[in-house]
Amino acid sequence: MDSEDALAKVKEASEAVRETARNVRQGLEEGQPPGQGLTFLRDVVREAPLPALLVAFMLGCLVARR
């Protein structure tokens, strides 16, 4: 397999992941009324992604230690 084949496969996989994420996001938006917990969490993460990532990491560390 040469680099062009590998690059084409990576692009294909990347597009598949984007399409899946788009479908999941659309399904979540259609299925959830505003004001719900996940809607609030999604909005917070969009406004401040790095602090949300830090909180998720710390919660993961706490759960992993138990």
Score class of each variant (00 low, 15 high):
L41P: 00
E47K: 15
R42A: 11
A52Y: 02
K11C: 05
T20Y: 11
A21T: 03
T39P: 00
V44M: 14
A21P: 00
N23R: 15
R42K: 14
R46A: 15
F57S: 06
L54G: 02
Q32E: 15
A21C: 07
A56F: 04
M58W: 11
V10M: 14
L54V: 11
G31T: 02
A56I: 00
P49V: 09
L59E: 02
E12Y: 04
L50F: 13
D43I: 01
A13G: 01
R22Y: 06
E15M: 10
L50C: 02
Q32M: 15
R25N: 12
A48I: 05
N23K: 15
L41R: 12
V10T: 11
F57E: 03
R46W: 04
E47R: 15
T39R: 15
E19Q: 14
V44T: 07
E29I: 08
A52S: 15
A13L: 13
E15S: 10
G31H: 05
L50W: 12
V55W: 03
D43N: 14
L38I: 09
R18G: 04
C61R: 05
A56S: 10
G27I: 01
Q36C: 14
V55A: 13
A13S: 08
M58T: 04
E12T: 13
A21M: 11
E47Y: 08
G37Y: 06
Q32I: 08
K11W: 02
L38V: 07
E30G: 00
P49D: 09
V45P: 00
L50T: 08
S14D: 13
A16I: 05
P49G: 10
V24M: 12
A16N: 06
E29R: 14
V44S: 05
L62M: 10
E12P: 00
P34K: 09
N23T: 08
G31S: 14
A21V: 05
T20W: 09
R46H: 12
D43W: 04
V17P: 00
V55E: 02
L38P: 01
N23C: 09
T20F: 12
G60E: 03
